[in-house]
Design a protein around this nucleic acid. Structure first.
Lengths: 359, 359
DNA sequence: CGGTTCGATCGAATCGATTCGACCTGTCGT
DNA sequence: ACGACAGGTCGAATCGATTCGATCGAACCG
């Protein structure tokens, strides 16, 4: 193998010249489109080998064909945070699966700098080469970039975002599911219930939920899940977690259960990680679950890895969410006009909910 | 905003014409390189606005400049598997952090099809546009692709791979660290020890470790960690897990602890997830840790999210691993010749190791 | 045997920008 | 008042491929 790093990279033109054919023929020999005599192809391949030519330059090819084979996935967080949410992984997996078999790769686009970012600095979202974009849990902070993408005629798919014009929506029935769970608790007699919400947006302080939460919320799914609970329990105690994690759930749990006199009979946690944290707090305070306290989760994580409690929770089809987004991307790239998708969550009974006890 | 989706995307040439300037001037107006009269810039920007021009095409720009702003990260697994390993997340985070501030984005490249893949089908690894590549836990299956990357003059950084010519190596002292942990157990009097290894490669069957493991191993870090243990305990019982997960650890634990007569005094698990699984198996069999059984892990995950056992384990600097790789990429792209990095793991004492009890 | 068709190859246009060198026009210094 | 210099603009080459239409022989068919 000729592997001379000093020599400049060979081009198709050089290969063609060495093989004694035209550039067009050399191109055909590589791409396989169009008829090329076997002998000619051999000559071209031999010349390529001799020159250390590694095949056509992807960038040049993209320029001509108008396709890069890249789909951007915008995750509005540091990766660390994004992957702490266990739902993002099967979602990405479904996305990668659907896109991968169609020959596309995923470009990870994170918000390079927080809310205080320099608005003038071009972010990769605005300048990366890609054929389409998937927005994951995106807030209004991205509005400018979304407008630019639209202008660049780049198809956009949004997962669990507030519906936007010209953006294919892949949604979960967060509100309905959340209401379903709440209704279940209501049927079991629970009247004094507390909710631990997901972070509603950067403008909020973690802690007791403020009355004006709705107008200040920027996270669509977080708000929807909360609305679902309020559809059933018009008034209740709320606590906003700073993140979807067991640690935040633990803190919230301690706060909610602190005063034995004012202890609710059930806690609705708007993610399973939060629920696990609440349960740990209850254990520590000597409150037994589900006898003295019912805990409802949301997401449907495999709890086996987290210590084995069998959560009662609303299971979301995370893998399918990613798959649906992937299929949406492919359809859009094919020039079709796919319909928005609404996926349903289902209540899975575990061992963390029981009838309300009246004290 | 003019947002006419029917009209073809505007080009810089169209903008220039409408503004009554040459293409070169229009280009300068956008890029900011070179002197442009304020008035001219205004004209160009106005024309762009009117035509719905979203800025220079990234692909064309890349072709000219030779830079795409993309770094490929090759993860030889489905994403699902890759992200199940908790060490990959801080690693990726460190990588994204270092690369992101330099303006690069990460292209996720997974092995599109298993070992049975059609070797002729061009994979994204071979055809994606990128400036550099980071290999994560790569086996010999990628050799052909690596050769191609080298031919294309694309800088390559490998994390925890067997050292390769022309590839910048970012390594962990897996063997030394593993030996360190084993030596610690030895000092505490443990003589009868079992090891639960990471998957050594596709050719192996999970279960009792076979004598010929070394020649068939394709996972470099897995093999190195095992060698480290064997540096101290020249002979011991081995069990190869099919994956680094609590479930696999649990299975391994049950198998190893099944016979009370042949129960080892310590188990060396070559990842923390495996260790947690072993501990759960021990709990279930009524074997108390660390009184009756010592368990050593490897990695240093935050166990708080997994149920709260404080593992004694070898902590690897996962974030720093990613950072080092990121810096390596940047140096290589600057034409420097960075040195390979060797990062050290440290033993962190938790509550899962105790002195050997003699029965 | 002439015309048609098919297979193989080539030339040239094209994708959408960047950038170097040339050119023109004021302005400043002496 | 003249040469130097700097700012502003433009033309043309360049990046590395793909692809359409044209060309040229050879085979095939009636």
């Amino acid at each position: 193998m000729t592997d001379d790093a000093t020599r400049p990279r060979a081009t198709l033109a050089a290969v063609a010249e060495r093989a004694g054919v035209s550039r067009s023929t050399a191109s055909l020999a590589f791409s396989g489109a169009g008829p090329v005599a076997a002998e000619t192809r051999e000559k071209v391949l031999a010349a390529a080998e001799a020159l250390g030519y590694g095949g056509p330059d992807p960038v040049a090819r993209s320029l001509r064909s108008g396709r890069t084979g890249i789909v951007g996935v915008v995750i509005e967080d540091r990766l660390r945070e994004a992957f702490r949410d266990p739902m993002n992984i099967p979602m990405l997996d479904g996305l990668a699966d659907e896109l991968g078999t169609a020959g596309f790769s995923i470009l990870l686009l994170t918000d390079p700098a927080g809310p205080d970012a320099n608005a003038n600095a071009a972010s990769p979202i605005d300048t990366a080469p890609m054929d389409a974009v998937v927005l994951v849990g995106c807030s209004t902070r991205l509005d400018a970039s979304v407008a630019l993408l639209r202008q660049r005629r780049i198809p956009i798919v949004a997962i669990e975002a507030a519906p936007m014009e010209g953006v294919l929506d892949i949604a979960l029935d967060n509100r309905r599911a959340s209401a379903l769970g709440a209704a279940h608790l209501h049927e079991l007699g629970h009247r004094d219930v507390a909710v631990v919400t997901l972070p509603l947006g950067a403008g909020h302080a973690a802690g007791p939920l403020r009355d004006d939460w709705e107008e200040r919320a920027t996270s669509f799914p977080a708000a929807e899940r909360l609305r679902g609970v309020l559809d059933v329990y018009t008034s209740l105690r709320g606590w906003m977690a700073p993140a979807s994690s067991t640690a935040s759930g633990y803190t919230a749990g301690l706060a909610i259960l602190a005063d034995p006199e004012r202890r609710p009979s059930a806690v609705i946690a708007q993610s399973d990680l939060l629920a696990l944290g609440v349960i740990r707090a209850a254990e520590e305070l000597g409150v037994s679950v589900p006898e003295e306290l019912s805990v409802l989760g949301f997401d449907g994580i495999r709890t086996e890895a987290y210590g084995g409690v069998e959560l009662t929770t609303l299971v979301q089809p995370a893998l399918e969410k990613g798959r649906a987004a992937g299929r949406g991307v492919l359809r859009l790239l094919d020039g079709e006009e796919p319909q928005p998708t609404l996926l349903r969550c289902t209540l899975r009974s575990g061992a963390t909910i029981g009838p309300a006890v009246h004290r």
